[in-house]
């Protein structure tokens, strides 16, 4: 994204609460949160080539951490930071096999984790409310007085989501354009060559995994604020697979792909329901990914003329 599209997007995001009604604005907040979750997958798979089919569990860890931290009457901002850190730490643990295990095996391990997350979560009923789920107590999260938003909590939620997501976006962009970002990309292109040039491959992989998991964790924590009802069943393997699929369909070559991916994540089921085509959106996601693999190797973003000249972003 260049400066002008960025400014236009920001203006649109600021004007939006003034023109749309409450329900639609809440939907936009949800899209922002999903952008963050998809961006997490995007960062990991796009820059390191590691396949994680389990990013839904980091979203879940973020959400349930948030709920339990709020139970302890922590301020929302503090809880948000701690929840993010916990998801990041979970990411480090999951990243450990990725240092030794390559290619499809990591996809296998993360898919297994995604399958096991709901049953494990149900066992930890004290934190997750077992099979019934739990509510999140976000009381005390009031907007500052000068904004005069006391009667409009949904606008305040929207503003918070916007700021947090924009913050993560800037951070990711700057990270990728820095020395660290180049080091990470080098490990993807050729691990041994990167190691020979003095790049700590293990650190680069683990670090990227942690950041991407933390991002997903933030998304979960925000989700807990917007929709204060959580159930472990919502973080099952289809959720993780849809996140992954959306990121790949959107395109792994540029950050815009994560935005497109999130729009696809929300838009595909919506379009499907609107047209009354299928009962299960999974079929639409699967077919979408197949078509993208066949005709658009760089994702939907790769079809845009500006990006089509870029070299193929496939991982070998």
């Amino acid at each position: 994204m260049n400066r002008y599209t960025g400014a236009a997007a920001l203006t649109a995001a600021v004007v939006l609460p003034m023109i749309v009604d409450r329900g639609l604005l809440e939907d936009f907040s949800r899209v922002f949160v999903l952008i963050l979750a998809v961006l997490g997958v995007h960062l990991l798979t796009g820059t390191t080539g590691l396949i994680s089919l389990g990013h839904g569990i980091f979203v879940g860890i973020g959400a349930f951490s948030m709920a339990n931290l709020l139970d302890q009457n922590l301020p929302v901002v503090v809880a948000l930071v701690i929840a993010t850190a916990m998801a990041g730490m979970a990411g480090v643990i999951v990243a450990l096999p990725s240092l030794r295990v390559r290619g499809p095996y990591l996809a296998l391990i993360t898919l297994g984790l995604a399958v096991m997350f709901p049953p494990i979560g149900r066992r930890l009923g004290r934190f997750t409310g077992s099979a019934l789920g739990r509510t999140v107590d976000v009381g005390g999260f009031d907007p500052p007085d000068f904004l005069r938003l006391d009667d409009h909590p949904h606008i305040w939620n929207y503003v918070v989501c916007l700021i947090v997501v924009a913050g993560w976006f800037l951070l990711t962009r700057n990270l990728l354009n820095s020395r660290i970002g180049r080091a990470i990309r080098a490990t993807k292109d050729h691990e041994h060559a990167a190691a020979a040039f003095g790049i700590n491959v293990a650190l680069a992989k683990t670090g990227t995994f942690a950041i991407s998991a933390a991002m997903a964790g933030t998304a979960g924590a925000l989700q807990a604020i917007i929709d204060p009802y959580l159930n472990t069943n919502d973080y099952d393997w289809t959720f993780s697979l849809k996140l992954y699929t959306s990121a790949v369909i959107g395109g792994l070559g540029s950050l815009l792909g994560a935005v497109v991916g999130a729009v696809i994540y929300v838009g595909l089921p919506w379009l499907n329901e609107f047209l009354g085509l299928l009962d299960s959106p999974s079929l639409a996601f699967g077919l979408g990914l197949l078509i993208v693999i066949m005709v658009a190797p760089n994702g939907v973003v790769g079809l845009l003329p500006r990006f089509s000249k870029k070299p193929n972003s496939e991982t070998s």
Partner: peptide, 24 residues
Amino acid sequence: NRSDFVKVNATIALLLALAGLVTE
């Protein structure tokens, strides 16, 4: 002739698509 990454993605896509198809 594509990379392993793409082939794995293809079977993941088939997993989702067929799971959806069976439910459908």
